[in-house]
């Protein structure tokens, strides 16, 4: 694929060599290049600066930049590995790697723990879960009485919070997810297996030799 040499991609802030990114992730070099096509389209949707802002991320997720969503914000924060308020290409590929069908279950469990540990204390606390439940109810327009929310929280913490200290630690989370594997469904994106067919135009911008793919 060395026919179309271009240095355009190297001018993207945070651009990293696809061969290097492939060596660190479950993606092949061609898949990293196909992801770059997706990345370019998201990062230029509002401001064409080669970086993904929260607004651009939400626009790609909801097709509507005005939609505020607690969970989308959390996911964006986890993509923003360097805490710069924006996601660069390396962040994008490394974080999507957690969602790869071949990523380890351990990594997926760890990602969900960080996702739900809203304030980053190292525990998923009851008030955080309550906050997330209220957010999901607002999002879905489903109405549940406060007492019903507390019943759901009681039931969840009885099962997950093994030492009953009112918060879920990493080890309790690991055990809870093992007993409820459907909770990891959000962590696998089958799309990532077909990324090169979804974004075939990567072949026109490839900067690596076919041997490397």
């Amino acid at each position: 694929m060395g026919c179309f040499h271009s240095t355009a991609s190297r001018q993207f802030p945070g651009y990293e060599d696809p061969v290097f990114l492939a060596s660190q992730t479950a993606f092949s070099v061609s898949e990293v290049e196909a992801l770059f096509e997706l990345y370019k389209s998201i990062s230029s949707s509002v401001i064409d600066d080669g970086l993904i802002s929260k607004e651009e991320f939400q626009l790609a997720l909801f097709k509507n930049k005005k939609k505020e969503n607690l969970f989308a914000n959390r996911v964006f924060d986890l993509f923003d590995v360097k805490h710069k308020g924006v996601v660069d290409f390396g962040d994008f590929v490394r974080t999507l790697n957690f969602f790869h069908p071949n990523a380890s279950q351990e990594d997926k469990i760890d990602f969900t723990f960080r996702l739900y540990d809203l304030d980053g204390t190292g525990f998923i606390e009851r008030q955080e879960v309550r906050q997330m439940l209220i957010a999901i109810l607002c999002e879905s327009e489903l109405k549940l009485a406060d007492e019903t929310i507390e019943v759901i929280l009681d039931k969840t913490f009885q099962e997950a919070d093994v030492n009953q200290d009112g918060k879920i630690d990493r080890s309790e989370w690991q055990q809870f997810v093992s007993r409820n594997p459907s909770l990891l469904k959000i962590m696998t994106l089958p799309y990532l297996r077909d990324i090169t067919t979804t974004f075939p135009s990567f072949v026109f911008h490839s900067e690596v030799d076919e041997m490397a793919t």
Partner: peptide, 29 residues
């Protein structure tokens, strides 16, 4: 939220139905 009765679900099953956690839409053109 889900086809199941929400009261029978644990909190995280409910939470994981959020659109904000469905990254599949990033890949829809």
């Amino acid at each position: 939220v889900a086809s199941q009765n929400p009261v029978t679900m644990n909190a995280f099953e409910l939470i994981s139905t959020s659109q904000g956690l469905n990254l599949g839409t990033l890949f829809e053109k």
